[in-house]
Design a protein around this nucleic acid. Sequence first.
DNA 1: ACTTTTGCACTGACCAGTCAGTTCAAAGAT
DNA 2: ATCTTTGAACTGACTGGTCAGTGCAAAAGT
Lengths: 208, 208
Amino acid sequence: MESSTRRQATRQKLYEAAVTLIAEQGFSATTVDEIAERAGVAKGTVYYNFASKSVLFEELLRHGVGLLSASLREAAQKSDENGGSKVDALDAMIRAGLVFIDEYPAFTQLYVAELWRTNRAWQSTLAVVRNETVAVVEDVLRAAVESGELSEEIDVPLTAAALVGMVLVAALDWQAFQPERSLDDVHGALSLLLQGRVGGGQPLTGKA
Amino acid sequence: MESSTRRQATRQKLYEAAVTLIAEQGFSATTVDEIAERAGVAKGTVYYNFASKSVLFEELLRHGVGLLSASLREAAQKSDENGGSKVDALDAMIRAGLVFIDEYPAFTQLYVAELWRTNRAWQSTLAVVRNETVAVVEDVLRAAVESGELSEEIDVPLTAAALVGMVLVAALDWQAFQPERSLDDVHGALSLLLQGRVGGGQPLTGKA
DNA sequence: ACTTTTGCACTGACCAGTCAGTTCAAAGAT
DNA sequence: ATCTTTGAACTGACTGGTCAGTGCAAAAGT
C-alpha cells in the first residue's frame, strides 16, 4: 500500500510550492504552471491530484490549519501537565504560535490575507478553520475564568480573537519589518502585554 | 476652473469602487472593467485618471492610510489636551482605530491582506505607509516610558506593532464573525487587555 | 497489471491597456 | 446676445497576450 506514499509525496511538494507562491503573489496572480514548475512536476500531475486550482488551495488551507491548531493544543496541554497555571498555558500557546509562524511564514501570511474576504469560494472553509483555531484559545480562557484565575468580566470570544490576532500580526510584522529581533524578544513583548505589565492596571477612566 | 473638481469627483468614485471590489476579491481577481462599471464610468476614464491598475491601487492606499493615521494622531492629541494619561491616549487611539475600521472596513481588510506580501510592486509604498501608522503608536509609547508612566522594560517597536495588530485583527474579526457585538464591547475587551486586567500581573515564569 | 507521472499541443474565456472619436462647458470673437 | 473654437474629460470597441483546464499516448514506478 505504498502506492499512496508516492502520491502523498507529490501532493506535499505541490502544497509547498503553492503556499510560497500564493503567499507572495496572491491566489489569482499565481498560475498553475508556476506551481507545477516550482514543485518540479508536470502540469498534468497537478490535475491528476487535484480537481482544480481552488480545490488545491482549499486542501492546502485545511492541511495547514490542522498543523497550527494541533500545535497550539499540544502546547496548552503540556503546560497543564507540568502543573502550570492557565495564564502559563496562554503564554505557552503564544510561544507555540510564534514558533509555528517562524517555521511556516508563508502559510500564515496567506491565511491572514484570505481570512476576512467575503464572496470567495473558500470563505466557508476558512470560517470553519478559523473557529477551530480560536476555539483552542477560548477553551483555555474559559477554564481560567471558571477556576477563578481570570476575572469574570473578561469577554471570552472577543479576547480570544484579539489574542490570536495579536500573535499573528506581531509575528508577521516581526518577519517583514523587524527581522533582526529574536523570537524571544517578540515572545517577551507579547508576554508583557498578556500579563498586564504594559497598561499598569489603572482603573478604566470614562474616556474623553 | 472647476474642471479639476470634476476630475476629483471621478477619482473619488473610482477609489470607492476599487476599495470594495479589491477587498472582496483581491487585487488580481478584480478587473478594471468591474471597477469602471461599479463607479459608473467608462473603462477609458480609469486610464485617463490613472496610469495603470496598480497605480490606481497605490494611490488608493496612500489616500486611505492618510485618513487612518490622521484619525489616530487626532485621538491621541485630544486625549492629551483633556489632561488624560498616556495610557488614556493609547485607549483613545484604540477606540479611534475601531471607529475607523467600522467606517471603512473594506480599506482595512485590503490593507491587512496586502501588507505582508513580498515581491509586489507596491511593497515599498506599503512599507512607508505602515511606518506612518505604527509610528503614531510608538510615539505615545515612548512618551509614556519617558514620563515614567510605563515601565522601561517595554520594547517600544514590538509592542506598538502588536497593539496595532491586535486592534486591526480584533476589529476585522468582529465584523466578519461576531457582527452582533457592539463597538463598545470590542473596545472594552481590548481595553482590558491593554490595561492589564487579563493576565493578572503574575511574574513571568520561565516557561515549560 | 496497475497506478502515477510526463510532455505537449490545444482551446476558449478573460482581461489590461489602447486609441480614434464624442461631449460639453467655458473662453473668446463678432 | 449669439456663434465659434478649444481642450480637458470621457467613451467603448478592439487587440494582443495570458491562463485554467483538457486530451492523450508514451514512459516510469511499484
